[in-house]
């Protein structure tokens, strides 16, 4: 089970700004270990964000994204107290979903 994400969601005018920190190795598949064996690729593949159940962001990621990635995005709408949920699935099928309340 992966470590939780840290999500901040703030309302500014009519848009909500969401900032997400994810805990993930994001192994590229290009590196080798001390024995010279390739370390298999392991990275987040799909990211979605929903606001009150409605998808506001959907992304396909690859191995070029950094370790412990930081994602920031805005969407129109949102009200204080609404829930924003962020989900990711990696190429091993591991998943993580976390939620934050818009402040």
């Amino acid at each position: 089970m992966a470590d939780p994400m840290k999500i901040r969601a703030n309302l500014a005018g009519d848009t909500t700004e969401v900032k997400v920190l994810m805990s993930h190795e994001m192994e590229t598949g290009q590196r080798k270990d001390a024995q010279g064996k390739v370390i298999p690729a392991w990275f987040i593949q799909n990211v979605t964000a929903t606001w009150n159940g409605k998808t506001v962001l959907s992304a396909e990621w690859g191995p070029a994204i950094a370790k412990n990635p930081f994602l920031s995005f805005r969407f129109k709408g949102g009200a204080r107290g609404d829930k924003v949920q962020v989900n990711w699935v990696d190429n091993r099928g591991d998943k993580r979903s976390d939620e934050a309340t818009i402040a």
């Binding site: 470590d3 840290k6 920190l21 805990s23 930081f70």
Partner: peptide, 12 residues
């Protein structure tokens, strides 16, 4: 600075 992954260590 804004997305400092140190936050993940703080949480843990």
């Amino acid at each position: 600075q804004d997305g400092n992954p140190a936050d993940l260590w703080e949480m843990r």
